[in-house]
């Protein structure tokens, strides 16, 4: 359980003191390290493996969390695939992937290139760094707190956004941003773009700093336009970061819980329901633990499959480099 001293302790006795670290010694030297894995594996067993197996098992049962689970086979899954709420929660997630992964990645790519290649060169690196820090700021704020900020700004009664619209003479556009089923999901998407945009900017700028400046100089000599340089050099060179950003943000979108909990609680009338919140409701509000487990199992399979597909893609693209 504990990470610290105890488990990993006992230094293995040094072997064959007499012999120097020769070629034969190297094989021997690699023994005795396995003991260092013991605390980590025991802890992972308790916190990850056992709960994971339990959830998968419970997904085949009916269970309220009290007493014994009753085996029902695939019933939860057949119910799940016929449940319109389940499908709409995955539909909502598709739009959130757009807001949390696709749009920030594309926007971040352009912003990073502009900051690095244009602002950095014409105004100085300090300016580029200043913008980068500013754009990154929403990322450091706790998810729950960003939810509070935005539910305050978007509040229909006293919220700042509607007041701004009224002050600008656009009072007709004022809406119950989070309370109207037609707009709630788009409002959440807006908040997520706001929250995510800084991450790709920082990642891409650090990737850009790896590019040899002489590449750009050569392109300039050849009379390449800024757009050509952007496409042929910038985008091409930071593909590793591109994949990392896309995969991490997509997975984050699939897992989203905190903002939805604080902003809308999945409502109004399930307009912003997402799988993780759907599972949470079944676990802790409806005491349908079997059904909740089935939802989280499906979500997990989806995430792991997607991650491995991404990794393959990334691997193939990097081996094409030769």
């Amino acid at each position: 359980m504990r990470g610290g001293g105890g488990g990993g302790g006992a230094p293995p006795p040094p072997r064959r003191e007499g012999k120097g670290p020769g070629v034969a010694g190297r094989v021997v030297k690699n023994r005795g390290y396995a003991v260092y894995l013991i605390p980590g594996m025991l802890a992972s067993l308790a916190v990850i493996v056992v709960p994971l197996v339990m959830t998968v098992y419970v997904s085949f049962t009916k269970w309220t969390g009290v007493g014994d689970p009753r085996w029902v086979g695939l019933e939860n899954y057949t119910r799940l695939f016929g449940d319109t709420l389940f499908w709409s929660s995955f539909g909502n997630i598709a739009l959130l992937v757009l807001a949390m992964a696709v749009i920030p990645t594309l926007l971040g790519l352009v912003l990073a290139a502009v900051l690095f290649d244009y602002v950095g060169k014409r105004f100085g690196d300090r300016w580029a760094g200043l913008f980068r820090s500013g754009y990154y700021l929403p990322q450091v704020i706790p998810v729950a707190v960003t939810g509070i900020i935005w539910s305050w700004i978007l509040h229909p009664g006293y919220g700042a956004l509607n007041r701004i619209l009224e002050a600008a003479g656009l009072g007709g556009l004022a809406k119950n941003w989070l309370g109207d089923p037609d707009y709630a999901l788009y409002s959440v998407m807006m908040v997520m773009i706001w929250f995510q945009i800084g991450y790709p900017v920082v990642m891409f700028m650090s990737g850009l700093s790896r590019i040899d400046p002489s590449l750009y100089e050569a392109a300039d000599l050849d009379g390449a336009t800024w757009w050509q340089r952007f496409r042929k050099i910038t985008v091409y060179m930071i593909r590793p970061e591109f994949y990392v950003v896309l995969i991490t943000t997509t997975i984050a979108a699939l897992k989203i819980f905190g903002q939805v909990f604080v902003l809308t609680k999945g409502g109004p009338s399930n307009a912003t329901l997402v799988p993780s919140y759907f599972a949470y409701k079944n676990f802790f509000e409806k005491a349908q633990v079997g059904y909740g487990s089935a939802i989280s199992t499906v979500l997990t399979v989806l995430i792991v499959a997607l991650a491995f597909a991404f990794l393959r893609l990334q691997h193939r693209s990097s081996s094409q480099d030769g």
Binding site: I48, P51, T55, V58, G65, F257, P275, G292, T300
Partner: peptide
Amino acid sequence: ANLLPQEVLVYPLYY
């Protein structure tokens, strides 16, 4: 383990 959503661990951990 990194990829797992916490929802898939939460109920057994709670229990």
